[in-house]
Simulated scan of single mutants.
Amino acid sequence: MQSPDFLNSLAGFEEVEHTADWAYRVWGQNLAELFIQAANGLYAIASVQRGANSPVSRNIQLHGVDYESLLVAWLNELLYLHESEGLGFNQFEILHLDRHNLQAKVSGAPVKNWNKLIKAVTYNNLAIQTTEKGLEATLVLDV
């Protein structure tokens, strides 16, 4: 259980109730923070444990029709890198982000343990909302 101070932070994530799948809410002061918190939340929900050895990094370039499609593509790319190469990341640098393009550098290590299977990130009711503190979105995971 998170403390009330956790919800007052300017960037973060928290798991939320969802009827059939898993969902989590992310927030940040800007789009780059929102995307990074979405990645952090994905790994936290899956209870990922990375190995201490063999650090790796990858450059990611994605295209989309809007910020929401880029957010889904971003998280699904991280899932793909786990499925295809057994990798998990804990350092994220957004190099470029506009309405149609995302360039990022991610660093991490081979995954020792991925405790919860996540098939994909969905578009279910996804909308990036402006709040008085910045931006927020709720993501639904297909499990």
Rank of each mutant, 00 (worst) to 15 (best):
Q2F: 15
D5G: 11
F6C: 07
L7R: 12
S9Q: 14
F13T: 01
E14I: 13
E14Y: 11
E15F: 11
V16M: 11
E17R: 14
H18F: 15
H18M: 14
Y24L: 10
R25N: 11
G28Y: 08
A32N: 08
A32Q: 08
A32C: 08
L34M: 05
I36A: 06
Q37T: 04
Q37R: 08
Q37M: 10
Q37N: 09
A38G: 03
A39Q: 00
L42S: 01
L42G: 01
A44Q: 08
A44E: 06
A44D: 05
S47Q: 13
V48I: 07
V48E: 06
V48P: 06
A52R: 14
A52W: 08
S57D: 08
S57L: 06
Q61T: 03
H63E: 06
H63P: 01
G64A: 06
G64L: 07
V65D: 10
V65F: 13
D66S: 14
S69T: 01
L70I: 00
V72W: 03
A73Q: 01
A73H: 01
A73Y: 00
N76Q: 06
E83P: 12
G86R: 02
G88C: 05
G88I: 03
Q91K: 15
F92M: 05
F92R: 02
E93I: 10
I94V: 07
I94A: 02
L95F: 03
H96C: 05
L97A: 03
D98N: 15
D98Q: 09
H100P: 03
G108W: 04
P110S: 10
V111K: 05
N113P: 04
W114Q: 05
N115F: 11
N115G: 10
N115R: 12
L117R: 12
L117C: 12
Y123C: 11
N125T: 14
N125A: 15
I128K: 01
Q129A: 12
Q129F: 11
E132Y: 10
E132Q: 11
K133P: 04
L135E: 01
A137F: 06
T138M: 07
T138F: 06
V140C: 07
L141C: 02
L141H: 02
D142F: 11
D142A: 10
D142P: 05
